[in-house]
Design a protein around this nucleic acid. Structure first.
Length: 473
RNA sequence: GGCUCCAUCGUCUAAUGGCUAGGACGCUAGAUUUUCACUCUGGCAAUAGGGGUUCGAUUCCCCUUGGAGCUGCCA
């Protein structure tokens, strides 16, 4: 493909925090757009704010993207044809651009104190001081009164008059200290960015960027402004809205494919009822003209539902890896991975009922551990209208029956068939038997069924726990 | 305040002039059931308001209202 017409998109996060869900979605849309069009997706780290940027955050952002499964073809970690991909390392180019504007008389230095110029009716040349022509001071772009318009791919024609924003705006603190607007425009030009796909909060910045592009003689990329992600109060999602760090969601138990799917559908759809997509399917279906115009509330409900579905579709290996990750995170020793896997499978349909935020899943599943013994409340061993005496008797008989079953027959179907038949044949009452059995095995009022539990923990642990329960009744 | 964007169930959304406005999540009733959950079946729930254009508006236009974003020598 011709380089001049190649699709090249980017995200330009500033490393002043972890990967925000909003940034993640913008990254996803950019990546999907690039993949769909067979173009390139680039990551450029916008670290011109030296005071707040850190390498750790840069790492965290890339880690977050990798976790989601988003990939890029050029970036600070892997380099690329238009390196460097860290804005701070491109200061030379920025200085040249600033100098070019200064030389052309399109920008000037000014020692006006900050803030002074806002308020009242601002003229286009808001800086009216006598400090122009100085060799010190900040550098401002001259802005003339005119109507600037551009076509947004998602929103259509956007028109803003330059009178409506503060006038000549600062593009650099100094020749070697460029600010956001200048750096963005410079880097997008240098990196041959064809489409700028970013949040709607940049809508007004785009006007400034177009002004700069014109002053510098750059080509203007296409723009698409995405609807914002909102919190429950319908405000722009921010740190104060709650958790927004994408990796925090990993630690809450969410799967990357669920997060990716949810984020993709939050503001985009294919025009039909379909909601579940793989990453690949998203890439082939994604187009900007199906992106929503209005903001969307980021809420955990739907995400959790999607997560549950993805969890249920995991392979054994992936499910185990997921479980181990969370056990390790909590520093809980797992003495049998096989048992953990089986336990996870029995709990699969129940994940929704857990407090996903606290992952008390580990606690809810501690019954799976070899040698583990529950703390039992003697009151709770007894089912409804049954009595402690009757329950004790039932447990005794149950233990006797289970002792006759060989260890390798402790499977759910075998136990279920035999124990159920035994209960019915002796008219013992299912609840009167199964409740104490299950409660004695788990110490929990809510858990998977007794046969599943018994099949996971095996004969030895089953008998231990039932005998213990029988003993304390 | 100024500028700009936006507007379908509680939420995410479908229907881009033409069926009783569809789906999903949630909520709810019931079935199943040893618990919770899962599953299955049913139900509640929306075109912000007012004008136009049209044979016909969720859809096109205008006004009102409402919400949001921006308004830094942050990005």
């Amino acid at each position: 493909m011709n380089k001049e017409t190649a699709i090249r998109v980017r995200i330009a996060p500033s490393p002043t925090g972890n990967l925000h869900v909003g940034t993640a979605r913008a990254a996803l849309y950019n990546e999907l757009f690039a993949k769909h069009k067979n173009g390139s997706f680039i990551i450029r780290i916008e670290d011109t704010d030296k005071a707040r940027s850190t390498p750790e955050y840069e790492q965290a952002i890339l880690d977050g993207l990798r976790w989601l499964g988003i990939s890029w073809s050029e970036g600070p970690d892997i380099g690329g044809e238009y390196a460097p991909y860290r804005q701070s390392e491109r200061a030379g180019e920025h200085a040249k651009a600033v100098q070019q504007l200064l030389d052309a008389g399109k920008a000037y230095r000014c020692t006006c104190p900050p803030k002074e110029m806002t308020g009242g009716e601002v003229s286009v040349h808001a800086c009216d001081c006598d400090n122009k022509g100085n060799t010190t001071g900040v550098i401002r772009l001259k802005v003339t009164p005119e109507l600037i318009s551009f076509t947004d791919i998602i929103r259509g024609e956007i028109k803003v008059h330059t009178n409506s924003f503060g006038g000549d705006f600062v593009i650099a603190r100094d020749i070697s200290d460029p600010l956001f607007h200048l750096a963005v425009v410079c880097d997008d030009e240098a990196m041959k960015i064809s489409h700028v796909i970013r949040g709607e909060d940049h809508l007004h910045n785009t006007i400034k960027h177009i002004l700069l592009q014109r002053a510098l003689g750059y080509t203007q990329p296409m723009y698409a402004h995405l609807p914002l992600l909102l919190d429950e109060q319908r405000k722009k999602l921010s740190k104060r809205s709650g958790e927004t760090n994408i990796l925090a969601f990993r630690d809450m138990g969410f799967l990357p494919q669920a997060m990716l799917n949810y984020l993709a559908l939050l503001g985009w759809n294919n025009g039909d009822d379909r909601e579940y997509y793989t990453h690949k399917e998203l890439a082939s279906a994604f187009t900007l003209d199906r992106v929503q115009k209005s903001g969307a509330i980021f809420s955990l409900g739907k995400l959790s539902a999607m997560n549950k579905k993805y969890l249920s579709e995991l392979s054994d290996a992936d499910l185990l890896a997921w479980g181990l990750y969370h056990y390790n995170k909590k520093n809980i020793l797992v003495n049998s991975e096989t048992r953990l896997l089986y336990a996870l499978k029995t709990e699969l349909g129940r994940f929704a009922s857990y407090d996903i935020e606290g992952i008390d899943l580990c606690e809810a599943m501690n019954w799976h551990d070899t040698g583990w013994m529950p703390e039992l409340d003697t009151q709770k061993i007894v089912w409804k209208k049954s009595t402690p005496e009757a329950t004790k008797d039932i447990l005794k008989k149950l233990i006797a029956v289970l002792e006759t079953i060989p260890d390798d027959s402790f499977t759910k179907p075998f136990l279920e068939e035999n124990i159920m038949n035994w209960i019915d044949a002796n008219a013992m009452g299912r609840g009167d038997t199964l409740w104490p059995m299950r409660y004695s095995l788990t110490g929990r009022e809510q858990s998977p069924g007794p046969f599943e539990i018994a099949s996971v923990i095996g004969k030895e642990d089953t008998l231990h726990r039932l005998t213990f329960a029988h003993g304390i009744l």
